[in-house]
Design a binder for these strands. Structure first.
Lengths: 76, 76
DNA sequence: TGAAATGCGGTCTTATAAGGCCGCATCTTT
DNA sequence: AAAGATGCGGCCTTATAAGACCGCATTTCA
């Protein structure tokens, strides 16, 4: 199960993800259809509610049309 | 289940991970004790055998003493 | 103001990652 | 040659991500 730091890291990551999406003025459903991940799941990811896998990260990067490392390009 | 592209991406990531580890002349057991991930699991990750989660990626980065985005810093 | 779009949480099943341990074959070092 | 270190795969249980769908409260807009 996730400890406090993990939860914090997931929330931070999710926030960054939401920022990237909004920068591009995309809705959850836009990203969803661009990468075949259910929009409700993306919402959960942005809220840091799930500990996503490597492949989901890759898909998400594709859906946002950015390089995966961009998803980790934030402080802390 | 994983498709061919996912498997390829995991193998590529694992290879990069192994490269980073070897650059630092660390053994699997060295990294293992630095981040509390079993050495056999790290071996599997380097071989692309498992689809690791976000938290494992973060721990791994800590074990290798690099920023997480460095783990994604490779082509394709 | 009514309809569509959007964010987001819940639920269910199935697949699989995590976590931990064991042991062995191949180096490496003495 | 013997002892240690190292890479790596197998096995087990438990936790949880994935995947798919539903519905609703807001927000947006025609």
């Amino acid at each position: 199960m996730l400890n406090t730091n993990d939860k914090k890291a997931l929330r931070r990551f999710g926030q960054h993800l939401a920022d990237l999406r909004k920068e591009k003025s995309l809705s959850l459903r836009d990203v969803s259809s661009a990468c075949d991940i259910d929009n409700s799941k993306i919402a959960k990811i942005e809220k840091g509610m799930i500990n996503i896998t490597f492949t989901t990260i890759i898909e998400l990067a594709a859906g946002l049309d950015v390089h995966p490392k961009k998803l980790f390009d934030y402080e802390e």
